[in-house]
């Protein structure tokens, strides 16, 4: 079975010339996408003065680590911030996978009597939102989450968009026969889901897992709203704070009090780029982990038939 599968996949491949064309197209797009990122890395290691004088150059006249030094100095607890971010990303992604998948699976089931209601219930939250202040009040005064790690996790635990994507995956990828077979075996709903359905839906899980990991990793807004304890500030929020304060002071440089009392020695542009490097480096490296499942799904799916 396995060998025949491999042979068949070879048959399926595109011809060599077409493959070359496809590769070239993909390469072109990739370069356009990666180039600015490369530039970000280069600028982050450029000397601020040289940058101010010459503008962006692929090979700058002088290199420097000042930007990183500045960030490590200003954001003393950079490592701790990494820790917080990693923690909320891992825990948050797991929680969000469980919540979203359960909901999505239920509303994907044709036999679920309240299917339409709960679908609408989710979609409606994508169209209307209560705004910042009411949400803040619920989170702080009803749930008392302020200044706790929960404030960084719970507000993003469920996402109607992910639910709907996952539902689509369930509907299109899981043949009814699989669920029927579960019923015949006498398996309960949960057993059917975990034993039979989820292994088939791995690409879907990987997708929403990746998306919610990214959302947690990149989130700075919840921390801005809910966190005052410096020990609980995640990375993106810390960097965003440094960045927006730099910008604020620059823009108010004509204010006499600010221009004469806040002595600015900030390597503004280079440290902005260094922040991008610090903030995205780890998650870009984690990306292949999710990528694995895009392929695995296919194989598992094939074996299952």
């Amino acid at each position: 079975m396995a060998t025949s599968r491999v042979r068949k996949r070879n048959f399926q491949q595109v011809s060599r010339p077409v493959n070359v064309v496809l590769n070239m197209a993909a390469m072109l797009v990739s370069i356009v996408c990666v180039f600015p990122f490369l530039f970000v890395v280069i600028i982050s290691f450029t000397d601020e003065m040289v940058l101010a004088r010459n503008g962006y150059k692929i090979v700058p006249e002088a290199w420097s680590l000042d930007a990183y030094r500045y960030i490590f100095k200003t954001g003393e607890s950079l490592l701790r911030a990494y820790g917080v971010t990693i923690f909320i990303t891992v825990v948050g992604t797991l929680i969000s996978l469980v919540f979203n998948t359960l909901y999505a699976y239920a509303i994907s089931r044709r036999s679920f009597a309240y299917r339409k209601f709960f679908s609408f219930f989710a979609v409606f939250t994508m169209l209307f939102n209560g705004g910042m202040v009411p949400t803040y009040i619920v989170v702080t005064q009803l749930l008392h989450l302020q200044d706790s790690i929960g404030a960084l996790i719970w507000p993003m635990a469920v996402n109607a968009f992910f639910i709907l994507i996952m539902r689509t995956f369930f509907v299109t990828m899981i043949p009814d026969a699989v669920i029927e077979s579960g019923k015949i075996d006498g398996a309960g709903e949960f057993q059917t889901l975990f034993r039979l359905v989820l292994p088939l839906a791995l690409p879907g899980l990987a997708t929403i897992g990746l998306f919610s990991a990214l959302a947690y990793w990149n989130d700075w807004f919840n921390a801005l709203l809910y966190i005052e304890n410096p020990k609980l500030v995640p990375l993106q929020s810390m960097l965003m704070r440094i960045e927006s304060s730099m910008q604020f002071l620059m823009q108010n440089a004509s204010n006499s009090s600010i221009s004469t009392t806040i002595l600015t020695e900030m390597p503004q542009e280079t440290s902005r780029m260094a922040m991008v490097v610090l903030a995205t480096g780890p998650i870009v490296l984690a990306y292949p982990f999710f990528q694995r499942y895009f392929v695995q799904g296919l194989t598992v799916g094939a074996v299952k038939e």
Binding site: L102, Y103, F121, T125, N129, G130, I137, V138, V139
Partner: peptide, 14 residues
């Protein structure tokens, strides 16, 4: 679980 979440984090603030 998600329905409770929707009530707390979406419908109440609405």
């Amino acid at each position: 679980p998600a329905a409770i979440w929707f009530v707390l984090f979406s419908y109440l603030p609405m």
